[in-house]
Amino acid sequence: MATTTTTMLRETASSHHEALGQSEAVARKMRRRGRESRFWWLVPTLYIVFLMLPIYWLVNMSFKTNTEILGSFSLWPQNPTLRNYMVIFTDPAWYSGYINSIIYVTLNTIISVGVALPAAYAFSRYKFLGDKHLFFWLLTNRMAPPAVFALPFLQLYSSFGLIDTHIAVALAHCLFNVPLAVWILEGFMSGVPKEIDETAYIDGYSFPRFFVKIFMPLIASGIGVAAFFCFMFSWVELLLARTLTTTEAKPIAATMTRTVSASGLDWGVLAAAGVLTIIPGALVIYFVRNYIAKGFALGRV
């Protein structure tokens, strides 16, 4: 050890000399490396432009008349009109589609989060017979292609007389939303120390009272994130929603495709309807913007 020390000291002295010669070059190199690129913003900007262009085009079309859409090509409406939106807001076939969508999406979100809460608690707090298999089996449902289930759902729900009701779609969407909600909530619940449960029990709380009064407020943001994703996946899904409905509970997005195929090509109304289906999603994202990253951060979606 002693010899190492002396050689090292000598080393240090000599490297000090050579460092003096090199330092300028190294410093220059380090300077170049340390600086952040000034054009980093270009990447997100270009990407967002790529995302926004098709949406802009839809919005653009929704304010044009059909003659303008088909007759001349312009980057913005020459004679802006609200006719397309008026068509939608005055025709019950259109706006009831909205109400239907919102009813079954809300129902689904409540059911999914409601049943997922106790289950996620069980997975985050206890070991039990077959827990790991059960968890994977739940996840497989998130992986099941809706196309596989479309026909069986149709038959199952017909036999229960549920076809063309909101609850049918809400239940069908549970197929992929419940596993998702369990997954997200389990992540948030695992982050709450177990001592809190124990303290509450010692303080004489019963399980349901503890769960509602103490535990749920603690994972409020988790519930928000889970609800957001349930809303999102139920809102965008159409294959099942369309298969299980005919008139009474038909979602807005389905109304859109059908009306277009029935009445020829009213591009303006089609675009306006498309724009209107984007708005609820945009509003929801805006309200939960601060939670999105957090929800994703758990790596649980």
């Binding site: 997100p44 990407y47 967002i48 995302l51 949406i55 999102m232 809102w235 965008v236 899904e237 159409l238 979602p251 807005i252 997005a253 389905a254 859109m256 495709t257 498309g274 289906t277 984007i278 609820p280 999603g281 945009a282 929801v284 994202i285 999105i292």
Partner: peptide, 11 residues
Amino acid sequence: MALPLLIPWNV
């Protein structure tokens, strides 16, 4: 960026 994720798939 999240906007396209919330557009119904047929739209």
